[in-house]
């Protein structure tokens, strides 16, 4: 399941729905990403994306995870538009019979969607606005898979 949306989401509700859909899986892992106020002066974060490609890229990343690990299900929810500090940007959840598969697949989804899904973050602070630069460690993180 992949969802790309401007609307806020309820991670507890999402997780309950996901868990119910994978009854008998035995292990569910979830990760939620929040808007971080690194500089202390963040007023908002704007997330731009590439409609059409975003869904394709996330679908491909999810399909790859389903193939590499023994998963009963995988969920990706990612927002775009204007978000405030502390708001939830995205979540992933994975379900498996085995804890290790669920943890690893969740990390894989996170690593890949960080630098292979077409989202761009722009931080607006009291001093102005700037695009968040990609980090070399994000690219390096893909090498372990």
């Amino acid at each position: 399941m992949i969802r790309v949306q401007a609307m806020p989401f309820d991670p507890g509700g999402e997780l309950n729905t996901f868990t119910a859909s994978v009854a008998g899986a035995g292990a569910v892992v979830s990760f939620t990403g929040l808007v971080r106020d690194v500089s202390g002066g963040l007023t908002s974060m704007e997330i731009e994306h590439y409609p059409g490609m975003t869904e394709k890229a996330l679908g491909a990343i999810r399909a790859e995870a389903m193939q590499r690990w023994d998963l009963a299900g995988a969920l990706i929810v990612h927002r775009f538009g204007v978000l405030e500090a502390e708001e939830m940007i995205m979540m992933v959840a994975t379900a498996s019979c085995h804890r290790k598969d669920a943890f690893e697949a969740a990390e894989f989804l996170m690593d890949y969607l960080k630098s292979r899904a077409p989202f761009w973050k722009r931080e607006v602070t009291r001093d102005g606005a700037d695009w968040v630069a990609s980090k070399t460690e994000d690219e390096d993180a893909l090498k372990r898979w």
């Binding site: 990403g33 590439y50 059409g52 490609m53 394709k56 890229a57 990612h78 940007i89 995205m90 996170m110 969607l113 960080k114 630098s115 292979r116 899904a117 077409p118 989202f119 761009w120 973050k121 695009w131 968040v132 630069a133 990609s134 690219e139």
Partner: peptide, 28 residues
């Protein structure tokens, strides 16, 4: 990206309808 798939600068444009240019992605 060529027709919504990440690609390379030396890739052929034969049959391509949509080309997108952007900075490295920063999702998650």
């Amino acid at each position: 990206a060529l027709d919504q798939e990440l690609s390379e600068f030396d890739a052929s444009l034969k049959g391509v309808r949509e080309v997108a240019f952007f900075p490295p992605m920063t999702g998650g």
